[in-house]
């Protein structure tokens, strides 16, 4: 076999493997879409139908009124988490990569440690703290809680990216008379665009998909994200799987659209730090 042939065979194998992985990863999404049109009885009948068997829009009707407000809540929380993460993480990551601070090592390692703590442990302590500070039952409370995961992650990713920015760029700006803040705002942030968008998307997904913090921090305030909303249909005495599937399908749409739009930046953002570093 010639080298060309071999590499062609290898490429074919890789494509096959990738397609296989894709099928596995996308199957739940497919199942949700099929479930959207199925009745709960059909879902539990013991036979899996690849295409909706006796399609019905009952599930859609069940959830459309009940869950629309929750989707909006999730959007607010997701966007809020993304904004909070950027506001904190972009300057923090810049400072941690470009200034020599005595505490850098301690700070960076504590950011890593932050992510080890299971969220249920954190949720319990946050509940107590939020109770003192009257942050329970509010958007800011939930957004800050979701930020506890999004922010450390964002700082670590951005810091890796900022290392790849040549110091000469900043020095040139300073020579031209820019202040430290101006350099940061006019030069550094625009250069870091794809990295910033990447961490913003991840922070958004963090807030969007959060369940534990929402469950802990919110009490009958009327604020209810879609992740909690889905659980309306999962009970001790009755479970409406069709409605669960329909809510899940609802919840996928905004996040899916966002990911497709941001996809280009995410690819560059994730690799930028490593390649140029």
């Amino acid at each position: 076999m010639s080298r060309v042939q071999r590499s062609r065979a290898l490429r074919g194998l890789c494509t096959l493997a990738a397609a296989g992985a894709l099928v596995i990863v996308l199957f739940p999404v497919y199942a949700v879409v099929v479930g959207f049109f199925e009745s709960t009885q059909t879902l539990f009948s013991g036979t899996y139908y690849w295409l909706p068997h006796a399609p019905t829009l009952d599930n859609y009707r069940t959830v459309v009124d009940a869950q629309s407000a929750n989707v909006l809540t999730s959007l607010i929380v997701g966007v809020g988490t993304a904004l909070l993460s950027l506001v904190v993480a972009v300057p923090a990551a810049y400072a941690l990569s470009k200034y020599r601070l005595r505490l850098t090592v301690v700070l960076v390692s504590s950011l890593l440690v932050c992510q080890i703590v299971p969220s249920i442990v954190l949720a319990t302590s946050l509940f107590v703290v939020f109770h003192w500070t009257h942050l329970l039952n509010s958007y800011p409370g939930l957004i800050i809680a979701d930020g506890t995961y999004a922010i450390p992650f964002a700082i670590l990713v951005l810091r890796a990216f900022f290392f790849s920015l040549p110091n000469e760029v900043m020095q040139a700006a300073r020579v031209d008379g820019a202040s430290e803040w101006q350099t940061f705002r006019r030069i550094v942030v625009p250069l870091a665009r794809s990295a910033v968008i990447t961490v913003a998307v991840f922070a958004f997904l963090n807030g969007w998909g959060d369940f534990i913090f929402a469950l802990t921090v919110l009490n009958g305030s009327g604020i209810q994200p879609i992740t909690l909303g889905i659980y309306t249909y999962l009970g001790n005495y009755s479970t409406d799987w069709g409605a669960v599937m329909a809510s899940a399908a609802f919840a996928m749409v905004p996040a899916g659209v966002l990911l497709v739009v941001a996809q280009r930046y995410i690819a560059t953002g994730l690799t930028a730090g490593s390649v140029k570093g």
């Binding site: 509940f127 107590v128 939020f130 469950l215 802990t216 659980y231 309306t232 999962l234 009970g235």
Partner: peptide, 16 residues
């Protein structure tokens, strides 16, 4: 509160 989570939630609230 979802069935699976009421117990945990009540204990968290008790802690606070």
């Amino acid at each position: 509160v979802p069935f699976a989570n009421l117990d945990t939630k009540l204990l968290t609230q008790a802690a606070g």
